[in-house]
Design a binder for these strands. Structure first.
Lengths: 157, 157
DNA sequence: TTTCCTGCAAAAGCTTTGCAAGTAC
DNA sequence: GTACTTGCAAAGCTTTTGCAGGAAA
């Protein structure tokens, strides 16, 4: 994966101080390649390595990561629940499973999707709504009764 | 608009008892054709006609409406803050404005968008993620610096 | 040595719930 | 009459914040 020097460099590039807690949390978050943890899930995972870690620090850290572009915050979906955090910051679509999980669509597929939106429809959205479209967010809601099991490898992202 | 008999009938069809509060709240919600109110905004609007109305009732009512298919609760992946409620239950895309509002894309435009998703990409989403796609949810994030001002009429929805 | 981060606890914001009284059916 | 709804207050859940001590630059 990433050694500690690389993470320090990554943090520096994003204007973040390095701390033991941030290092740990970034590693945990980065290990969630397809699924996306909540703050509490991240805390539970990280506490095995740092029992003193506090939930407030997890939230503060995720806020700092999100601000600086190291992750993205995915707000509550369908069933109201806690926010989830996504280590992938590039534009990509999500799949929402019936059991409340959020999964990434592989980058390449997401790209093809975005490119498939006809230019003229986009133009009409901008014209009729009086806006400029910054980006498009898409979620595939999985049919209840199918259990998602991504067959993609992490590398595909 | 809709007279009281029609609303009673609508409620009955959806298995809901008619109450003064529900009547009022449905009217308020239905008057928000392009924008989507939060529970609190709805309360404020409705209190001019029923000062005794309570926030808990607004939430309970919106829950009942959502359950029975009379409105939809919007918990977008991108938005933060309180939930918003949408009287339009058909599938349609949304525009998220920089100031946190959520606006409907006209039905016809939404439909064209959905139809523009290539069949083969949808198939590959289902195959690679191991799901069946129930529906697709889309949001256009408006560029900060543009202020949305829909030029569509309510009738267009 | 200055500035930022952490952990704790407390507060804040949003939503749900228990209950007694009232209303729809 | 029965079952459901209302309004109130209180609790619940998620997230943020104030502060004192500690660590990074």
């Amino acid at each position: 994966m990433m050694d500690i020097g690389q993470v320090r460099e990554l943090f520096r590039r994003h204007g973040l101080r390095w701390t033991r807690q941030r290092e740990l949390l970034y590693a945990e978050l980065a290990s969630c390649v397809l699924d996306h943890p909540t703050a509490e899930e991240l805390l539970n995972a990280a506490r095995s390595k740092d029992p003193g870690l506090s939930l407030a620090t997890v939230y503060n850290t995720l806020e700092a990561f999100s601000e600086s572009g190291l992750c993205r915050r995915l707000s509550s979906v369908e069933a109201s629940g806690p926010c989830r955090f996504d280590v992938h910051t590039h534009d990509h679509a999500h799949v929402l499973t019936p059991d409340g999980r959020v999964m990434d669509l592989p980058r390449e597929l997401s790209q093809r999707l975005m490119e498939a939106i006809p230019r003229d429809i986009l133009d009409e959205v901008e014209r009729s709504m009086g806006i400029h479209v910054d980006r498009v967010s898409m979620q595939f809601i999985a049919h209840p009764g199918t259990h998602a099991s991504a067959r993609v490898e992490a590398a595909a992202l």
